[in-house]
Amino acid sequence: SIVTKIISIVQERQNMDDGAPVKTRDIADAAGLSIYQVRLYLEQLHDVGVLEKVNAGKGVPGLWRLL
């Protein structure tokens, strides 16, 4: 499923980069989806406690990390 793919992308990127959070844009590119589509999935995963959003604010790139 797309959700499983997104989780594995975040996991893979974090492992490659010493646990650093992953940008929404990088996840979207790797999943082959638009940034808006991916954001909806990321928000859902956040709501159920799978991911945390590391930063927030208007015009700030979203950074995500697995919990």
Rank of each mutant, 00 (worst) to 15 (best):
N55M: 07
L33T: 03
Q11V: 08
K5I: 08
I9Q: 01
A20W: 05
A28S: 04
T4E: 13
Q11D: 04
S1N: 12
D26K: 03
K53N: 15
S34Y: 04
V60Y: 12
D29N: 11
E52M: 08
Q14G: 05
V10I: 15
N55W: 09
V54Y: 05
I6Y: 01
L45I: 02
A31V: 14
K5W: 08
D18G: 14
P61K: 10
R65G: 05
S8M: 11
L40Q: 11
V50S: 03
L40N: 07
W64L: 00
V22A: 05
N15R: 12
P61N: 14
R39D: 06
L33Y: 04
R13S: 04
Q11M: 11
I27Q: 08
Y36W: 12
G57D: 09
D47Y: 11
Q44K: 13
D29K: 13
A31L: 15
I27E: 00
I6F: 02
V50I: 15
L66Q: 03
V54D: 02
K23Q: 08
I35M: 12
D47Q: 15
R13W: 07
S1P: 08
K23A: 14
G19P: 05
P61E: 15
V50L: 11
K58F: 09
Y36T: 14
Y36C: 09
L40T: 08
L63F: 07
G32R: 06
D47A: 15
V50H: 03
L51G: 01
N55P: 11
L63E: 14
V50Y: 05
D47W: 08
L66I: 11
K23W: 05
V54R: 01
V50T: 05
V10H: 00
L66S: 03
I35R: 04
L66A: 05
W64A: 00
K5F: 09
Y36Q: 13
I7L: 11
V54G: 01
R25M: 10
I7F: 05
L63Y: 09
Q37N: 06
K23M: 09
L66K: 03
V60F: 11
T4G: 11
Q37D: 09
Q44V: 10
Y41R: 02
D26L: 04
V38M: 06
S8Y: 10
I2K: 03
D26P: 02
S1R: 11
R39M: 15
K58G: 10
D17R: 13
V3C: 12
E52K: 05
Q44M: 15
Q14H: 09
L67K: 14
S1H: 12
I7W: 04
K5V: 07
Y41F: 09
I35A: 05
V22F: 09
A56F: 08
A31Y: 02
A30K: 07
L67R: 15
L45V: 02
L67D: 04
D29I: 13
A28G: 03
S34I: 04
W64K: 00
P61A: 13
H46K: 13
H46M: 10
A20H: 10
L51I: 09
G49D: 02
K23T: 12
H46V: 15
I2G: 02
K53E: 06
V10N: 00
R39L: 15
R65S: 08
A28D: 03
L33F: 04
P21I: 04
L66G: 02
L40A: 10
L33K: 02
A56G: 12
I27R: 01
T4I: 14
R39K: 12
Y36I: 11
M16K: 13
L51W: 02
G59F: 06
S1C: 14
G19D: 07
K58P: 13
K53D: 08
D17I: 11
A30P: 01
G49Q: 04
V60N: 13
Q44W: 15
V60W: 12
L40K: 14
R39A: 11
A31C: 12
R65V: 08
K23P: 14
P61T: 12
W64D: 01
L40C: 10
L63P: 02
S1W: 13
Q11K: 14
P21W: 15
R13H: 07
V50W: 05
N15A: 14
V54I: 10
G59V: 04
E52Y: 05
L66R: 02
L67Q: 10
G49F: 03
P21G: 15
V48S: 12
L66Y: 11
K53Y: 09
M16T: 08
A56I: 11
A56S: 12
D18C: 11
T24Y: 01
Q44T: 09
L66E: 02
A31D: 01
I2C: 08
G57H: 08
G19I: 03
G62K: 10
G62R: 08
S8A: 13
P21M: 05
P61I: 10
G62Y: 15
L67S: 14
N55T: 09
A28N: 01
V48E: 15
L40Y: 14
P61C: 12
V54A: 04
G57F: 05
A20E: 08
V54H: 03
Q11I: 11
T24P: 02
N15G: 10
V22D: 01
L42V: 02
Y41A: 05
M16Y: 09
A30F: 04
L66M: 10
S34H: 07
I6K: 00
G49A: 02
L51R: 00
N15E: 11
D29G: 06
A31W: 03
V10W: 02
L45N: 01
L63M: 12
R39W: 10
K53A: 04
T4P: 05
I9P: 00
K5R: 13
Y36F: 11
K53P: 04
I7D: 00
L33Q: 03
I27M: 01
V22H: 01
K23C: 08
A20F: 07
K58H: 11
A30E: 07
R25E: 14
D17C: 15
L45A: 02
T4D: 12
